[in-house]
Write a protein that binds this DNA or RNA. Structure first.
Lengths: 120, 120
DNA sequence: GTAATCACTATACTTAAGTATACCGGTATA
DNA sequence: TATACCGGTATACTTAAGTATAGTGATTAC
């Protein structure tokens, strides 16, 4: 659990706060990380499965983004010694909990759309 | 208020959900929008004040990002007929409420750091 | 008359992000 | 022998994002 005091501590300094938010944003930056996380939210997937489910992604980008997500502790990569080899990607605990952040974003987006409605 | 049912509706479709999140992300994409919002959170500011408070930003980028934020309904721009003219930027209601989203991001980031601690 | 303030804009440039296309070794199937 | 599958990589390219630098016009202070 994150104590309230920690958040308050970070909020005291505008610079630190922006850095902390950027840390989180870096987890999902780029064009493809969100679709990948979204796809993995329905369960673990192999490389080719992801490639099939995410329209227009190239293997180069899928490989790169999965590597980023793995390094950042959002997904795990498991190689199975089958023939031919299969590789499974799965969300970590942090990866799964990221959905809470996404939910808040969607909620804000819906509310924002309502706020802007009459004003144009 | 955003009803739960709306969120549930959006969550049903992975594609729609990703689009909704992207709508929100577009509000803060780019290198400078977050520092600008952060700075305006402490009250309305003039162009030059923002330029002074945000290290290394060029007038070109500040101008561009403020325009984006204005178009997206995050800030308002008010011109005062003083000599020389002064222009004030201020967060809208949506802009202010965006801090809730940022708070959730910081919280997740702190928790994520804890999750990853022992694992490297 | 020179410099500084305000809020920008114009032009040209560099760097980062993403795309297109082809290819790798190993194995199995036809 | 040729083809397809697996999970990628290599190279070259295009497009988007951000930077550097200079300049605008009206006004005031020195």
């Amino acid at each position: 659990m994150v104590r309230i005091s920690e958040l308050e501590q970070v909020k005291k300094c505008s610079g630190t706060y922006v850095l902390a938010v950027n840390d989180t944003l870096n987890v999902i930056n780029g064009k493809w990380k969100l679709p990948i996380i979204g796809s993995l939210h329905f369960g673990k997937k192999r490389f080719k499965e992801l490639a099939r489910e995410i329209p227009k992604i190239t293997p180069r980008m899928l490989s790169k983004e999965l590597k980023d997500l793995e390094v950042n502790g959002i997904v795990t990569r498991t190689v199975h010694a089958t023939i031919p080899v299969t590789v499974e990607y799965e969300l970590t605990k942090s990866g799964e909990s990221f959905n809470d952040v996404l939910d808040v974003m969607v909620k804000w987006g819906l509310q924002h759309r309502k706020n802007s409605m009459g004003k144009r």
